[in-house]
Nucleic acid binder design. Structure first.
Lengths: 203, 203
DNA sequence: GTCTATAAGATGATAGAC
DNA sequence: GTCTATCATCTTATAGAC
């Protein structure tokens, strides 16, 4: 996760956020909500309050290049959410349950629209668009590592921490989809509770 | 799950499978692999060895109507897979782990392409295409009930069975996505093992 | 960097012969 | 029921003025 110069929070141009950043954010949100194939570049430009020319100025290789940037943006965003959720408690079981609760609250607040920022795009582009697939893989690996670090810091052995992280991440991912389809926080809350039990039963 | 007359495995017309069935199967597989928006009707017709006219003959209301039928087909298909996996053992923990193993094997055999038959379409159409969303909801509910029945039959109380089914379904759904992105059976196998532990710790 | 106009092709859907 | 031809629209992407 190297930080590039243009990642600074105050862009050089003005009071708000630069055009490139607005485009990436809009793309990330739209891909998250309606997938890669279902989102047109014109809509992205419109939501970002940019013109089509500006989009292609920053992403000359087109939609695919923009999607990679959007997935990487979602990667950082979701990792931040995981990290804040996990930071709430030293007990990893409590921490994971906090994460599930935070995801559930965010999901409800968005009217069940804003789930995982990569799942839809990942499934649509699996085995068909290598650069996007790679970005999705990097994101999932990153999130798993965030969880694994928490478990290791709580005293779990390397292998145990890695495996627990794998299961917890998978469970949260699936619970988020289920919660979106059911339009209910329950899958996330129940899964969070069960994950806490699993973690406790292994400490 | 009422069985309609046209659900018989030997169609009236010929030795093989009827055109309508071929179209639905092709649509189900393609939506599963590349999502709803990323799959054109022409490709569906081609894969089904049918013509565009035939597709619109059986589904006069177009792609949306076809998608509902495709999701319902995937619903039955996945429920069958769950039921066979669960039937392998009276111990619900062993049974669930068998399911995860079966899903992992099927995923590997398809070169990580054939995951859950509804997730991609569900995420793309959330809150935008009510009939499809409803079909996805029915599918997830159906699968959860399949699991809940197994847990109740194993001696779990109603509430416990329902909640365990919710978590196990979510975990398997998420593990399937993770396994596809990682191109590895490990997320499904690890999640299956952990779900077995969770079930045992609650009996 | 921003903007408009437009090219080139794909998409969902329809018409009507057979 | 099957097939081909076609329409209207939308898509990604480019050109070139400013």
């Amino acid at each position: 996760m190297e930080t590039k110069p243009q990642d600074v929070s105050t862009p050089p141009t003005g009071t708000g956020v630069g055009t490139r950043e607005r485009v990436v954010r809009a793309a990330s949100r739209l891909f998250q909500r309606q997938g890669y194939e279902g989102t047109g570049i014109k809509l992205i430009a419109q939501e970002a309050e940019a013109t089509l020319g500006s989009v292609y100025h920053f992403f000359p290789r087109g939609k695919e290049e923009l999607a990679v940037a959007a997935i990487q943006y979602g990667d950082r965003e979701f990792a931040d959410m995981l990290n804040s959720g996990l930071a709430g408690s030293d007990d990893p079981a409590v921490a994971v349950e906090n994460c599930a609760r935070a995801l559930a609250a965010a999901l409800r607040e968005s009217n069940w629209a804003d789930g995982c920022p990569v799942t839809a795009t990942a499934l649509e582009t699996l085995g068909r668009t290598p650069p996007i697939q790679q970005a999705c893989l990097d994101a999932l690996r990153n999130w798993q590592e965030v969880l694994a670090v928490k478990f290791r810091d709580s005293g779990f052995g390397d292998e145990d921490a890695r495996e627990l992280a794998c299961t917890v991440l998978s469970a949260l991912e699936g619970a988020e989809v289920t919660a979106q389809v059911f339009r209910s926080e329950e899958p996330l809350l129940t899964t969070g509770r069960h994950m806490a039990q699993l973690i406790r039963s292994r400490s």
